[in-house]
Nucleic acid binder design. Structure first.
Lengths: 178, 178
DNA sequence: TTATTTACCGTCCGAGCGGTCGGTAAATCA
DNA sequence: TGATTTACCGACCGCTCGGACGGTAAATAA
């Protein structure tokens, strides 16, 4: 049910998707849908939490001897979470704070950003990451790259590990020939 | 007038922004607004065209002795267009094909993607770009990075040239210490 | 001066929205 | 068995939306 809602939200936009549309796609009526969920916003909240929980689980589970390695681990893990929970993360990344639920999601996203920025900062101190770039900017750009997955990655084309390899390679070494 | 509409579209979403909201922000009535534009969708169309025209102007104007240099030029130019037409490009990148106008924007975006992918492919042949990555994937990832600007870049913080430097540096050399 | 165009407004409309409510029938519990 | 909960439905409500329409007053053109 949540999955059906998220699919429609992503396909036509949250606002453009009516509760009737969701009910119809499930073969039930709107009334029945409201018997199982209390509001449209609740569906959104459950979905973005599913995405955020995955991201934070990855962030709390990173391994590596130093910050540079840990950053690479987090980038790779994030790609895998994006791929695995693609539709939920897609919805999350399109949220823009128009309601309490969305504000809460934004707050958690900013918290995640801070973790990444701190990691970049530490990696710079270690000398593992070039120090001629602003850590916050670098963090945003790298995760901009990671997050772009939602725009084009489709689970039936190419496996997540290969993508994760490409993303980490580009993140650390860029396009230039090795 | 277009600027006011785009600002509201970006702030609250296209669907969530009513023609009344736009009119109110301009100190006129909805009727007057409809005297100047024929529909809400027309406003959207004008805005995304403004963004796409900037991007294609950049793509048609790139210089460089080889594909690798031309790719770098295009990346840099795109960052500057994003910064300059931030609000229009923001709207463009949030469009998802729910109407004729949006479909048309998507088609033009795909055309731009193809230009970039071709450039990466050529650069690989030249040996200027690592050949262990799929060109289409690399193109999408790099421009995912570029496009992430709309999520966090604000014209009053840091100048576009500095950002463009960082983006090209990360694109070609990655995070690793030089 | 008169005719026409331009900018502007208040009012209205049909449609669609999120959500409520009263009720029914099947499943579960005692 | 009877009582209660659960899943489901049709009808309805207040509200907002994009857009249409008829009209007015100022600017412009003849």
């Amino acid at each position: 049910m949540l999955a059906a809602a998220v699919r429609l939200f992503n396909a036509h936009g949250y606002d453009a998707t009516s509760m009737f549309d969701i009910a119809e796609s499930l073969g039930i009526t709107k009334s029945t849908l409201y018997h199982h969920v209390s509001s449209k916003e609740q569906l959104l909240g459950m979905a973005v939490d599913r995405a955020l929980d995955g991201l934070f689980a990855a962030a709390n589970d990173i391994s590596g001897n130093n910050a540079t390695q840990r950053l690479e681990t987090l980038i790779r893990a994030s790609v895998l979470v994006l791929a695995e929970r693609l539709e939920f993360v897609t919805l999350l990344l399109r949220v823009h704070g128009n309601s309490e639920v969305e504000q809460h999601a934004l707050t958690r996203r900013r918290e995640f950003d801070r973790i990444v920025t701190d990691l970049v900062k530490q990696a710079q101190k270690e000398g593992g990451v070039r120090d001629d770039v602003d850590p916050a900017t670098a963090a945003r750009l790298i995760f901009g790259m990671v997050n772009s997955l939602i725009e084009w990655y489709r689970p039936d084309r190419g496996n997540p590990e290969t993508i994760a390899d490409t993303v980490t390679a580009l993140s650390f070494h860029g396009l230039k020939t090795a």
